[in-house]
Simulated assay, not measured.
Amino acid sequence: MADTASTRSDSTRPDSGALVADPSLAAATPARRRPRLPRMSGIGTALALGWTILIVLGALVVDFLPLSEARDPSLALMTPSTLAPDLFTDHPLGTDSQGLDILGGLLYGARVSLVVGIGGVLVGALIGGALGLVAGYRGGWTDRIVSILTDTLLAFPSLILLIAIVTVLDPTLINVTLALGIMVVPSYARLVRANAMSFAGREFVTAARSLGAGETRIMLREVTPNIIQPVFSYSFMLVAVLIVAEASLSYLGLSIPRPEPTWGNMISAGQSDFQRDPYLVGVPAVVLFLTVLSFNQLGEAAGRKWSPGAAKI
């Protein structure tokens, strides 16, 4: 009887116990590997936020910092040109071929890049967001007109359209910002239109309409608060795109000209001496790369946080 009982108890043991005891199979389950991704993502987001804060603060207080001359070559005539970087001198990142301080030029260039990037995003968000909101909520012929307008703008290559706009206008900070803002209007119009269409038929919109609320009030107070988060997270990535676009225009000589420093025209000015003094190109290129990467990382982090399907870990 004892042998029979032990046989029965052995036979009633679940076969899956062997699977759980296998360390290789247990390690392959997603439950044990999932926490590593948020941890690495959190470190990257923290580094990106720190770099962005550093760049923003530098652009805001550059006029009050004890930096050497970085914008007026006539004031740097006595400064040796193409000084190598030395952290323990008055020119910690060196000087360019005109004797202008590179560190000061980077901070002044950061101001231009941030004004153009953030300002262009605000222009595009206001114009494109308004068009997309009206088109997505009302539909019909309004939606068709806005769709034709955005499709027309998207039909032109972005860089060619941007060069055409900047060529017609004077290459001032305001004009470059407006040109870049016009370039991102279709992107915002499509994003806001898609979100507005998804919320236009929701219960709270129907309830507000049944209570006698007008279309303008419904769009501004019912629909708009629900589409701010995806627009905000998307804006970080567009700031990075506009910073690269402005740097490209400056490199081609179509944006703010020298001696006003921008990251693009600093790279352009140093390319002739690149083989002898690679830091003239490498330093502004690295700062541009890190800034664009940081804004992209912040945009992805905001998208993960505010996405309806994001996992809450």
Rank of each mutant, 00 (worst) to 15 (best):
S233Q: 06
L154P: 13
R13H: 10
I118D: 04
P35H: 00
V62M: 04
T224Y: 15
D72E: 14
L191A: 06
A310V: 04
G50Y: 07
M78E: 07
T216H: 14
W51M: 05
L87K: 02
D86H: 07
K312A: 07
S97A: 14
V241C: 02
T82F: 12
V283S: 08
A179T: 06
Y137H: 08
A125E: 10
R33A: 09
P38Y: 12
F232R: 11
A84W: 06
L106A: 01
L180V: 13
A130Q: 11
S307M: 03
Y188H: 09
I160V: 09
P225Y: 00
I163Y: 05
T177K: 01
V205L: 04
A285K: 07
A21Y: 10
L47T: 03
A247I: 04
L67H: 02
V185K: 09
V112Y: 05
L47A: 15
A285G: 12
D63T: 11
T79D: 00
G140A: 01
L254I: 11
T172G: 13
P80L: 09
R39F: 07
V239N: 00
A21R: 13
T89W: 08
I165M: 07
Y188Q: 01
N195Y: 07
R209T: 10
S16L: 11
T52P: 08
L65R: 05
Q98F: 11
Y108L: 10
A245W: 00
L65W: 08
D15N: 14
R39H: 00
V176D: 01
A18R: 14
M219I: 13
R8P: 10
T152G: 13
G299P: 11
K312T: 10
L211N: 15
R33K: 14
A196F: 12
G129N: 05
I227S: 02
L238V: 06
S255G: 04
D101M: 02
R39V: 08
V123T: 03
L57T: 00
R144V: 11
A208Q: 07
A200F: 05
Q297C: 10
A311E: 08
E215M: 11
S235H: 06
G105T: 04
P259L: 11
L114M: 13
L77A: 12
G282D: 12
R202T: 10
P230T: 09
T291K: 05
W263M: 10
L159Q: 13
L57D: 02
A26M: 15
